[in-house]
Write a protein that binds this DNA or RNA. Structure first.
Lengths: 146, 146
DNA sequence: AATCTAAATGAGACTTATTTGCACTTGTGT
DNA sequence: ACACAAGTGCAAATAAGTCTCATTTAGATT
């Protein structure tokens, strides 16, 4: 099954005119497996751990290429480094609640909010590509522990 | 009038338990004057231009203190550096449309969107402090020039 | 007005995240 | 199997922001 997953990822990469290198396959596999919000360094270390040979430069360059092809999404939680997650389809789009105490990130989706965003764009004759909505604050767990 | 503006800013700083130094006054005055979204380096260079003696360290430290006191707001447009603007009252809160072609930033406010944000927070028992809503895309001017 | 002291500043070294130059390697079309 | 552009690794280079420490200053105190 891991073999066929590899084949699948190779296919995906080729469809996006990217060479299907071991490094890129491993990177995508990692993001697929965990669905977490990794930063570049974490991805680098994880791949090293899995005995994959990669360099930081390759991680950064691969992420750039994958983001460009919209296979990976870049997230900015405002703490000075970028995070990445495997891109979700439109139907899986979500925004983020970010706890300032514990750093936890809660994903949410609100249809009405999305509708208002489109309405706002139309008002300004603005054609949207992507958006980010981050709400910072305190999560319920952290409120309890006080 | 500039004199009384200085006095006013001194007053504001003192009310927030911050020493009213020339550097801080000049910084606030700059942000008040332009209402632009400066980054730290731009602020530093502007102040130098105006013959004010400042160091980068002071710009960063002052901004930190002013943000803490909510006199200045930190903006993150996801391009790897922070911007700052003079804080607006709750009634002046706004979000941003950011043009990926020309970098222009359009401010907007949408009451329904704000309401949905609060609703979402309640759903998750999450207490919000601040939020950022950034919509990236192409502005009307840039669409014309194509 | 002179004095005091904690807070603030300047200069530059340092850190962290990311990018780049370049020689070497590897997918992939032929 | 071959050729070559695309991709990679390494180390050096940037970029943004932070930190240290000696010096200065705002504002309280006499």
């Amino acid at each position: 099954m891991s073999v066929s997953e590899n084949q699948e990822l190779k296919q995906v990469l080729r469809e996006h005119e990217l060479k299907a290198t071991n490094q890129r396959i491993a990177l995508l596999k990692l993001l697929d497996a965990t669905r977490e919000h990794f930063d570049a360094e974490e991805i680098y270390l994880e791949l090293l751990k899995k005995q994959k040979n990669v360099s930081r430069a390759t991680v950064y360059r691969s992420l750039e290429a994958l983001v460009e092809q919209d296979l990976v999404t870049r997230l900015d939680f405002g703490d000075g480094r970028m995070r990445f997650e495997r891109s979700k389809g439109d139907d899986e789009h979500h925004d983020h609640l970010i706890c300032e105490e514990c750093g936890k990130v809660i994903e949410f989706f609100n249809l009405e909010m999305e509708a208002q965003q489109l309405a706002t764009c139309e008002e300004h004759d603005f054609t949207p590509s992507v958006h980010t909505m981050h709400i910072f604050g305190t999560c319920s767990d952290c409120k309890k522990n006080k």
